[in-house]
Write a protein that binds this DNA or RNA. Structure first.
Lengths: 342, 342
DNA sequence: TTGTACGCGTTATCAT
DNA sequence: ATGATAACGCGTACAA
C-alpha cells in the first residue's frame, strides 16, 4: 500500500488546523471558514492531490454511503434492469452500490445480507420472490431484523412476508388479466409452465392465471400445469415435457419471460411452431423481448422503476411497521398470441 | 442510527482485553489464544450478536475489501456478463464489488474512478473500449495513475493505451476470421455497421473485417461502411440508412451484437428478410443470442471469463509495467449467414 | 472564526 | 499468551 495524502497533510501544508481543513473541504453545516483560509486549504489539497477517505469519513460520521444489492443472477435481464434502477437511485442520492449475487443459491442470500451488514451498508435491497418455506423465511427474517436493529434499513422486491418494506408486483392481477386477454382472443386450452412449487411469485402467477381461466368457464387441465425451475433451462425442460406427452393445448403461459424464452427454444427444437401450433406468453416484459421473434406476449413490469422504488423505500427512513408499494402490471399482447377468433 | 455492538462490548462481556477479543475472533496470524479464552470470547460475541465492522477493520488494516467496477450500462448483456465474472472472481477472493454505471457518458467514467478512489477500493476494473481522443485518454490516464499512486491497482478491458494492465480482445483477428468465414460461404458484397468513428473497438473490428475482405479480392465498398452509435438504436439507425439507399449488399456486419440486434429489428420493420434478403453477423456472442431467430452469426468472446481475468489482473499486484492479456475469439456461424454457394 | 482534543471500531506494536 | 495503548483518517463538541 502506497502512501495516501491525508487531511493532516493538507492542514499542515496550508498552515491551518485539522479542523479548519476539514471544514474548508467538507463545508461544515454550522461552521464557516474565512474565505482566504478556505482558499489556502483548497489550494493545498489540490497541490497535494488530496483525496478524502470515504471510509474514514464514514467512521467519523457513523454512517457509510453504500447501499447493498442482492440479486440471484446479474446476467438475467430481469435482475440487471432492476439493478440499473437501484444504481440510478443510489447515485442520485450520492450513494454507492455494492452488488452481490447469490447465483441462485438461497442460502447465500442470508450470507450476503450478513456480509453487507458487516460493510455497514446504510440500506439493503433484496430482489427475489420468497419461498413457501417457513424455516428458510424465518432465518432470513431474523437476519434482516438483526441488520435493521443495527441501524440499517431494508427493502425487498417480492412478497411482504419478512416484516420489511416491500415492493410487491401485481402477480395475481397481472396473470389474471393476461388470462382474460387470452380468453378474449379465443384461447380455450391453456397450459402453464409453473416454476417451482414453493416459489411464491411463480405460484401467484400460476394461480392468478388458472383461477381466471376457471372463472371464465375453461379451467386449465391440472395435467397441463408443469412445475420447473424458474430459469431458462427450467422453461425449456417444462415445455419439452409438455410437448412430449402431446398435450392438447392452444396456449402456454410461462410464469416469467426467461422461462418463456426457454420454452420457445424447446418448441423450435422440436419443430413446434409458435404461434401457429401453439401460442406462448410470459411475464415481466424483460428488455430482451425487443429482439425476440415472434414478439412475445407478456405482462409488463416496470423493472427499472421497481429498482428505483425499492431503493427509495430503503433509503427513506421510517418509523412505523413495514410498508408495501404495489407496482401495477400491464398486459402487452404481441404476435406470439394472435387472435384465434378470426 | 441505532447502536451496534462493538468488539469492546464483546471483550468486556467475556472478561478479556480488547486485543485478546480481536485475536480470538479474527484469528491473528502470529498470535494465538488460549482455547478456553477463545471459547469465552466467541460465545460472548454470539450472545451479543456482534458483527465486525468491515470499515473499521479496513481502517486499521490499511486496506479495504472492495473492488470497483465501471461499466457503461449494466442492462447491456455484454456488460452484465462481464460483471458476473467480476463478482465471481471478487467473491472467490473474499472481496466485494462496488458497481458503477456511466450510462454511456464518457465524462462520468473519470468521475467514477475518482469516486472509487475515495472509497479506497483496493482495485478497479474499467470495462469499455477507448476512444481515439488523446485529450480524453490523457485525463483518464492521469486519473488512473493517481489512483495507482495512492496504492490501488487497475485493470482495463479494452485497448492498452492507458498504461494499466489490460485485457485485450482479439478484435482485428476475430473480425478478420469472420470475414474469411463469410467469404468462404460465398459472400462477396459486404457492408459494415461501423459504430462511432473514434471508438477503437469499433474501428478495430471494422478495419479487421474490411481489410480481410479486401485481401480476399472483394473489398467492402466504402459507401457501405455506415458509422453509428455503439448501441441497439445505433445499429437500427445504421441499418435503416443502409437499406434506405438500396445498397447492393449480401451480408451486413455489425461491430457488436447489440447493434446487430438493432439492425435485425430495422430489417424486420422494413420487410427485409434475414438471411433471405441479406445476411447478418455481429460480434461478442452475448447471452441474448440464444433466444434470437434466426441464430445470429457472431464472434464469441468469453465475457464472463474476461471479467474474471480482468479482476485477477487487477488483484494480482505486480511491479513491472502494464501487462496485457489477450483473449482469443472464435467465429460462430449460425443461420443468419447461410452458405451461399449451394 | 479557529484550534484542541476526543471518539468512531479495529488492528498491531510493545511490554509484561 | 495476554493486556495496555498507539495508530488508522476524519468529524465535531468544546474551548479559546
Amino acid at each position: 500500500m502506497a502512501t495516501s495524502v491525508t487531511l493532516s497533510d493538507v492542514a499542515r501544508e496550508a498552515g491551518v488546523s485539522l479542523a479548519t481543513a476539514s471544514r474548508a473541504i467538507n463545508g461544515s453545516a454550522t461552521r464557516t471558514v474565512r474565505p482566504d483560509l478556505r482558499e489556502r486549504v483548497l489550494e493545498a489539497a489540490q497541490r497535494l492531490r488530496y483525496t478524502p477517505d470515504a471510509n474514514a469519513q464514514a467512521m467519523a460520521r457513523g454512517r457509510t454511503t453504500s447501499v447493498g444489492l442482492v440479486v440471484h443472477d446479474i446476467t438475467d435481464p430481469y435482475f440487471s434492469s432492476i439493478a440499473a434502477g437501484v444504481t440510478a437511485a443510489a447515485d442520485a442520492a450520492g450513494l454507492q452500490v455494492t452488488l452481490t449475487d447469490t447465483r441462485h443459491d438461497p442460502e447465500r442470500e442470508v450470507e450476503l445480507v450478513r456480509l453487507l451488514q458487516r460493510q455497514r451498508a446504510r440500506a439493503i435491497v433484496v430482489v427475489g420472490g420468497r419461498h413457501d418455506d417457513e424455516a428458510g423465511n424465518d432465518v432470513m427474517r431474523r437476519t434482516l431484523a438483526e441488520y435493521a436493529a443495527s441501524g440499517g434499513s431494508v427493502a425487498l422486491v417480492g412478497q411482504p412476508v419478512l416484516d420489511v418494506d416491500t415492493v410487491v408486483l401485481e402477480n395475481v392481477a397481472g396473470a389474471g388479466a393476461l388470462a382474460r386477454a387470452l380468453h378474449a382472443r379465443g384461447y380455450r386450452r391453456p397450459a402453464v409452465l409453473g416454476g417451482p412449487d414453493t416459489h411464491l411469485t411463480a405460484r401467484e402467477r400460476r394461480d392468478g392465471f388458472t383461477h381466471a381461466f376457471a372463472a371464465l368457464g375453461t379451467p386449465v387441465d391440472p395435467a397441463h400445469v408443469v412445475p420447473s425451475a424458474f430459469t431458462h433451462e427450467g422453461g425449456e425442460a417444462a415445455m419439452r415435457e409438455l410437448l412430449a406427452v402431446g398435450a392438447d393445448v392452444d396456449v402456454v403461459f410461462a410464469v416469467n419471460d426467461v422461462m418463456a424464452l426457454g420454452a420457445l427454444a424447446a418448441a423450435r427444437d422440436l419443430g413446434v411452431r409458435v404461434p401457429e401450433d401453439v401460442a406462448l406468453a410470459g411475464f415481466d416484459d424483460i428488455l430482451t423481448l425487443r429482439d425476440v421473434v415472434p414478439g412475445l406476449t407478456s405482462v409488463r413490469v416496470p423493472l427499472v422503476e421497481v429498482g428505483r422504488l425499492a431503493t427509495g423505500l430503503a433509503l427513506d427512513a421510517h418509523a412505523e411497521g413495514p410498508r408495501v408499494r404495489t407496482v401495477p402490471t400491464e398486459v402487452v399482447l404481441r404476435a406470439s398470441t394472435p387472435d384465434r377468433r378470426a
